[in-house]
Design a binder for these strands. Structure first.
Length: 573
RNA sequence: CGGGGCGUAGCGCAGCCCGGUAGCGCGCCUGCUUUGGGAGCAGGAUGUCGGAGGUUCAAAUCCUCUCGCCCCGACCA
């Protein structure tokens, strides 16, 4: 393409609305423009990247035996009422009514629609397994859309749904998708890690997230070096401490700790380290019950784990009023000793402690030399805290490490959650009506593009991985002499005919402007054509990632670039 | 939903406190010169100052309401 023919409105200055790097660069490079909060138009350059990612996804999904279809963006409320998600999904589900006042919603995901299709069309186990996918615009009315394409309200997603006759076959379908996802993100040129994940609102029994590793990621993952364990901290297991404190119990004692509300303040005041203290978190269930959760002072509670144990989903920390009612003390002094009528559960790190410090259930008072077997009763010791770097890996002798990631893919083994709710059955070999075992698998296409930038950029602009770059080669004639223009035209024609995707900056701009725009757009290879080089009979090929420049005779450019591209499995857009 | 911030030319901003009828840089258009890392000179176009209401002789500026956008947080004792 010629730059003068392609709509690439680059900006010298970053619009004030953009904070994160991918958002800033996409705006500056003329890839996207905002229409409303979390809603964007994809301009030609941005769309090229999306199409490439989609192409890789299609190839790998097809290869894995999934077939493409396309469901509507709008779906009728009745389907969502069947699974209960019309109410459960909350405000994130954008609703609307047609002229007959019938309720519809903009699909945030499509389990209901596909399951409805399945139950209408599939009769026999002979038709299974089946796996269908689509690449489509989704809408989720996020509380706070942000970071450009990273967390938009409208976004492009590939979603796939598998239906199997039995558990074993379903696991196989799941594994096929998992493997396909590894190929997809590898082919996109991204550094990523698959981690065990929480199933959240979607539900199901097993789940992995695919995380693109980047400092700016919103998710935290932990993993061990040898690769035997990797998980989102949301659910990462923490093994019990290997050793228990064997100290003899000392006499319980109340001490005055005026004005010390936080763990740090208490520890500083009593001159003990935080791992000698147990904090008492009072949680409230939707029905108003209060439960005390004991966590070692230097640890963080993990609400997903607590929810899972209690079988709830909307646990919140008790407000100040409830705290003072339950513990008869202001916030900051709750403790397990003498708490009446309240369930007490504790992280298993607490079980290993002796003679620890807790709140005194009285203003400005803490208790020291507390022991759980003697001074209060714990209903259960279990894994309730957040994993962190340095913790023991649950699967190996290694210590866990932490990293930040951007969730670009998520696979779920759903089981019969939706097939049961919607009565999606088939006849098995014995003629029995049987519920289909489902899986669902998503990839954020637009988010993957943003994640690729977060992971691959420098201070001048984007540095696209070759397979998803909007163009392979950026031609930069830097002077306007006849020989330069002629050489550029010849190289453009020959490379384009050979199948390279070439962007030819044919604008009447100064060299600096072209160089800067080229660095911003981030095609992997730049070719500078100028009188200075041509006087020596050469043009200059620059790698965007390393900045390395090699002089080449014009005739050698095509074979050289072809050689550079030959190691990649490029999408055919 | 709570808190903070911002809406003035295509983009980045100043002007607002202290009311007097709108400016700077970049970009854009024309011409000349220039031409290997964001050119120079000269000329030019572009604004219902987010919207509505109010105060006032007079409102970008003060007051009220409203819409939109960005950031942080959503109770971690």
């Amino acid at each position: 393409m010629r730059t003068t023919r392609l709509f690439i409105p680059t900006l010298r200055q970053t619009p004030g609305e953009a904070e994160v790097i991918s958002h800033r660069l996409m705006l500056r490079a003329g890839m996207i423009r905002k229409v409303a909060a979390g809603i964007y138009t994809y301009l030609p350059l941005g769309l090229r990247v999306l199409k490439k990612i989609e192409c890789i996804i299609r190839q790998e999904m097809n290869r894995a035996g999934a077939q493409e279809l396309l469901m509507p963006i709008l779906s009728p409320a009745e389907l969502w009422r069947e699974t209960g998600r019309w109410d459960f999904y909350g405000k994130e589900l954008l609703r609307c009514q047609d002229r007959h006042d019938r309720d519809f919603c903009f699909g945030p995901t499509h389990e209901e629609v596909i399951t409805d299709l399945f139950r209408r069309e599939i009769r026999s186990y002979r038709q299974l397994p089946m796996n269908c996918y689509q690449i489509q615009t989704k809408f989720r009315d996020e509380i706070r859309p942000r970071f450009g394409l990273m967390r938009g309200r409208e976004f492009i997603m590939k979603d796939a749904y598998s239906f199997d006759a039995d558990e074993e076959s379903a696991r196989l379908s799941y594994q096929k998708m998992y493997d396909a996802y590894e190929r997809i993100f590898t082919r996109c040129g991204l550094t990523f890690r698959a981690v065990e994940a929480d199933t959240g609102l979607i539900g199901g029994s097993m789940s992995h997230e695919f995380m693109v590793l980047a400092e700016t990621g919103e998710e935290t993952i932990v993993y061990d070096e040898r690769g035997s364990y990797a998980a989102n901290v949301e659910l990462a297991e923490v093994p019990p401490p290997p050793e228990e404190d064997k100290a003899a119990p000392l006499a319980l004692e109340a001490v005055q700790t005026p004005g010390t509300k936080t763990v740090q303040e208490v520890c500083a005041f009593l001159k003990v380290s935080p791992n000698r203290l147990v904090k008492t978190l009072l949680y409230q269930t939707p029905t108003g019950d209060v439960i005390a959760v004991l966590i070692r002072g230097d640890h963080e509670a993990n609400e997903i784990k607590i929810n899972r144990f209690l079988g709830t989903t909307v646990l919140t920390l008790a407000n100040a009023e409830t705290v003072s009612k339950v513990s008869s003390a202001p916030v900051g002094f709750a403790g397990p000793v003498g708490l009446k009528g309240i369930r007490i559960i504790a992280d298993h790190a607490v079980k290993a402690m002796r003679n620890f410090v807790v709140g005194g259930n009285k203003n400005d008072t803490h208790l020291i030399n507390v022991n759980w077997d003697r001074d209060f009763t714990v209903e259960a010791f279990l894994d309730l805290r957040q994993a962190r770097a340095g913790d023991q890996s649950p699967r190996s002798a290694d210590r866990l490490q932490e990293a930040k990631g951007i969730e670009v893919g998520h696979v779920f083994l759903l089981g019969t959650k939706y097939s049961q709710a919607m009565n999606a059955t088939f006849l098995d070999a014995d003629g029995q009506e049987t519920l289909a075992i489902m899986g669902c698998y998503g990839i954020g296409v637009s988010r993957t593009a943003a994640a690729a930038i977060e992971q691959n950029h420098d201070d001048k602009g984007m540095v696209w991985p070759v397979p998803i770059a909007p163009f392979h080669l950026h031609l930069l004639p830097v002077t306007a002499s006849e020989q330069v223009v002629k050489t550029a035209g010849m190289l453009y024609d020959s490379c384009t005919e050979a199948g390279l995707e070439v962007l030819w900056d044919d604008r009447d701009e100064r060299a600096g402007v072209k160089f800067n725009d080229a660095d911003l757009i981030g095609a992997p290879f730049h070719l500078t054509i100028g009188d200075r080089g041509l006087a020596q009979g050469v043009v200059e090929l620059k790698r965007r990632d390393t900045g390395e420049v090699v002089p080449l005779q014009p005739a050698d450019v095509l074979p050289h670039v072809q050689e550079l591209l030959s190691s990649y499995d490029l999408p055919a857009v």
